[in-house]
Amino acid sequence: MSSATQRHRTLWEEGRRPGREVASLVVALLLSATVVDLALSAGLGLFFDLAFVSLCVGAALAVRPPDFFLIGVLPPLAMALVVLLLGISDRGSIARADDGLVQAVLAGLSRHGIALALGYAACLGLLALRRSFVEHHPR
């Protein structure tokens, strides 16, 4: 195709990264955001929540279509991983310091439930839009 007839790729077509690469990057950045948030405050707060939602959106836009499933299940697993790690290492950052591990993990997940719901909904919604676009506009 000549440059005059080339079609510009839309936002829905842009994601071309392998799912494992995107998932690894999301987990690394989420753990980094956790460390930054804990350095700025006594527990996980708004910074972590905003980073989580942003990373969910970014992952849904970056992944290639064959790897949609991996990214579709990533948000709750990534949140659970962070909360579990904090439950093991620093319970007071997600719950009361004297809570048991299971109680602390459940408390941490419930305290960040809105961010989890928003991030997961945004991720799944964007993946559904991208899938629909890919099905209706084959290359």
Rank of each mutant, 00 (worst) to 15 (best):
I94E: 00
R130N: 02
L30C: 12
L126R: 05
V57C: 06
P75C: 09
H136T: 13
I94D: 00
L106K: 11
F47H: 11
L74H: 02
T10N: 07
P66Y: 12
R91A: 05
A4C: 08
R130I: 01
S54N: 13
P65T: 07
L101I: 13
G108M: 10
G19M: 00
G58Q: 13
T5G: 03
L25R: 08
G15I: 02
L61K: 04
A33L: 08
A121C: 07
A80V: 04
I88L: 14
A33T: 01
A62Y: 14
L118S: 12
I94R: 03
A107N: 11
V134L: 08
H8F: 11
L50K: 08
V73M: 12
S32Y: 05
L40M: 13
W12M: 00
D67P: 14
L127T: 01
L44P: 01
G125L: 07
S41K: 14
A128W: 12
A23Y: 01
L46F: 15
C123N: 10
E135M: 12
V22R: 02
H8P: 08
H8W: 10
C56T: 06
F68W: 04
A95T: 04
E21A: 13
L129S: 06
T34D: 00
V27D: 06
R16N: 11
V83S: 00
V27A: 10
A51G: 08
R9G: 03
A4N: 14
R91N: 05
L29S: 07
R96N: 12
R111N: 15
A39V: 08
L74I: 03
F68E: 01
Q6C: 04
A117W: 15
S3T: 04
M79F: 00
F52L: 03
G119L: 05
A60I: 04
G92Q: 01
L31C: 09
P66Q: 11
Q6W: 15
G72T: 01
S132M: 07
S41A: 15
L25C: 08
L85K: 00
Q103S: 14
